[in-house]
Design a protein around this nucleic acid. Structure first.
Lengths: 253, 253
DNA sequence: CCAATAGTGTCTGTTAGACAATATACA
DNA sequence: TGTATATTGTCTAACAGACACTATTGG
């Protein structure tokens, strides 16, 4: 919001300062969901051409910023998200950036990582244009030490680890897990999602009072049940941002 | 509005997949301190050459990644930090990245922003190599709406705003302000620092029990005082990372 | 009736927040 | 002694955590 805008007309193509060789710039997206009571990440298989780095290995969806198409980094991330899933407007947050001389064998590169939370639903995963395989993997499996059964390309394991850590810590004091469920969802479902992400049980009564006190849910009528009391269905009042709880979940040790 | 001239002709050597024209890559550093009971940011004046963007305006210290010198993004940030201040190992955290077609008149660019917390002390600010002016500015002054008395170059006001917001929110539940003080510091000094960053008073007794419970301070002997009870001096047990408090500061409303 | 899950009530130990009281320096 | 700041103590209302209890469906 710098009020003074520079004259926009000026087109400098080659100011001396730009003689620096440019690193190449990519965007990677961490697409997370909860499926089968586990936190999962969407991975794509890299092309197998001999000149490609990490041929055939699994990697985060992503790729070069296309300055002819992408207005900004977030638009680029949304484009790549759209290419793999048909999800229109998921929760999307910038995770950080990773850049170094060594992370890509082709040269100095920097990637801007985003993470998206989506509802797995009956979601169709669309194969990439180049028919590359796309699939969900349990994050704990992918990150299993010391040797992952699914070794990721580049430094994508670092990025995944950072994303999962960020999610787990934010879940302690935000409503983020609600973005992992399709609407309408019930409070028991939401609680289960919290438990899956946190990896520990959560007290029912306390959970419910917390959620209601945060005032971010909207009743949308009871949902069907099979052989017991039918639960109330809810949806988010605001799907663009999570709410922050004043206290962390369970500091008890 | 993305479809502007994007000549793919800008050839880049190396492997085929990299025919994308590369955005240029910079790193900017938000150097923050508390001085004269106010949160301040270090700004540098841009060169005044006619071919330079935003000539003479104030900006965050930063610049191009030099792939011949910088091993990774953080090393680049530390280098730029070192160029302006002589501070060896301040607290340094990645803030985020900003990239778009419009933020720099010279073309599609992406910057990786870091923020550093340093003790102002009797710190010597070193003028840049090109003798550019360097100075501290109160962040509230720089960000004053609707028209800042110190309009920043590029989208640096956005970056500053994001950094200050991040700091203010983290201060609610971390020991970050301790990195803004020279060691040894006293609890009243630390409390004052919290109050300056948060912009509101903090209860003395509660503050102290909180700090002691977090167990991140080390006594280092009483420090001189002028005409009253001399306070205890402390230093950080670990200068590399802040501690997180289990609860936010004052949810009272 | 029972089984199973949804949802609410109750009790209790802990603690944040307000503020009062005390400690220690110097003049 | 008084003054100024540092540091500790006390009281209370609020609340998290544990868990028991009630509610509502189908069979």
């Amino acid at each position: 919001m710098a009020t003074k805008s520079a004259p926009a007309g000026r087109q400098v193509r080659q100011s001396p300062a730009q003689d620096f060789p440019r690193p190449f710039t990519t965007v990677d997206v961490l697409i997370l969901t909860v499926l089968e009571d586990a936190l999962k990440v969407l991975l794509v298989q890299r092309p197998s051409g001999a000149s490609e780095p990490f041929p055939g290995q699994w990697a985060l969806p992503g790729g070069y910023v296309d300055i002819a198409v992408d207005d900004d980094l977030e638009a680029c991330a949304r484009r790549k998200l759209q290419e793999k899933t048909a999800v229109a407007s998921p929760y999307l947050e910038q995770l950080g950036s990773w850049g170094s001389a060594m992370r890509d064998p082709r040269g100095w590169s920097a990637t801007h990582a985003y993470f998206a939370l989506i509802a797995a639903h009956g979601l169709e995963i669309t194969k990439g244009a180049n028919a590359a395989a796309v699939a969900w993997f349990g994050v704990d499996e992918v990150l299993m030490p010391p040797a992952s059964p699914v070794p990721l390309a580049f430094d994508h394991a670092d990025i995944l680890r950072a994303g999962v850590e960020r999610l787990r810590s934010k879940v302690e004091y935000t409503s983020l897990p609600a973005f992992l469920l399709p609407e309408p969802f019930t409070l028991p479902q939401l609680q289960r999602t919290y438990e899956v992400v946190l990896g520990r049980p959560v007290d029912k009564s306390g959970f419910r009072t917390r959620m209601m006190a945060a005032d971010f849910l909207e009743e949308v009528g009871v949902v069907d049940s099979h052989a017991n009391r039918p639960p109330m269905g809810y949806r988010l009042k605001d799907r663009t941002a999570p709410v922050f709880f004043p206290r962390t979940f369970s500091p008890r040790r």
